[in-house]
Design a protein around this nucleic acid. Structure first.
Lengths: 136, 136
DNA sequence: ATAATCTTTGCAATTGAGTTGCACTATAAA
DNA sequence: TTTATAGTGCAACTCAATTGCAAAGATTAT
């Protein structure tokens, strides 16, 4: 697991108690977390503080947000060298059974040929189905 | 433009005044519509009735929903022979400038090699950037 | 055709995620 | 130390989505 202080330093985000707690928590997760998820895990910490922390993290490319269609934005830590631009696009997988959302970092992102004059800047790719744990 | 009655019949959805109005409206659009969009266009029609109509349409594969990250679910009519299963997957494009969401029916959907034992059932693929109209 | 049943609709109210205002506290700079 | 700047906690608010319920409409059985 990456070092929290190190990440904050690299991404130029000041280290505070809440930021440390939230980032440490996110690094431990095997699935993307919603604000609610984090709230429930870090019961001492205020929701809006977590919210603003997540916002700061997204702005500074420490984490990225995923719209998986569950109605709640999910968050996951970016790869340390990720700047969440084109080269770091990846798919996400939402399990219809266990409702977890994963980053599929290991699945190569295929270049998509867009219609004439369309320009890609980002993407929100969510594949839905059954994860390896639920597909039995 | 396809015939509303025909579509409803094929998809086994009873024809009512509101359903006709909503589907006719959706068929005319060049971009995916939010509930709010439809509400604003069909001012005589009640929001919750439109909402339930959309729900019925999604359930019966007349339209599909798109989570484009704008905070509002968008809806677009499926191809007539679409059952919104694997063979009908397509990308969506969200323009960061004009905020319109399009179905990219003409862009071939690339088969994604998922990790061992993952099973795809559906997908919510949204590419974001500048559309041909805004990329100047 | 009439009564009984099921479906759809309109309105009002609720839910819940996300967001903001503001005062208080902590940190950094002068 | 004083002043300025950034972060936090709480409460309140926004707004899309959703639901309860009663009225209206459509369908089926008698």
């Amino acid at each position: 697991m990456q070092n929290v202080d190190e990440i904050l330093k690299i991404k130029n985000v000041k280290n505070t108690a809440i930021r440390t707690i939230v980032l440490r928590h996110l690094l431990k997760q095997d699935k993307a977390q919603s604000l609610k998820d984090i709230e429930n895990s870090l019961i001492e910490t205020d929701r809006s503080s977590i919210f603003r922390t997540l916002k700061t993290f997204v702005e500074n490319k420490i984490i990225h947000s995923i719209e998986d269609g569950s109605g709640m934005t999910k968050y996951a830590v970016c790869a340390i060298d990720c700047n969440c631009e084109l080269k770091d696009l990846h798919y996400h997988f939402y399990c219809n059974n266990c409702n977890k959302t994963f980053c599929l970092h290991e699945v190569p992102f295929k270049k998509i040929k867009l219609p004439e004059n369309f320009k890609i800047q980002e993407a929100n790719m969510v594949i839905k189905g059954l994860c390896n744990n639920c597909n039995k």
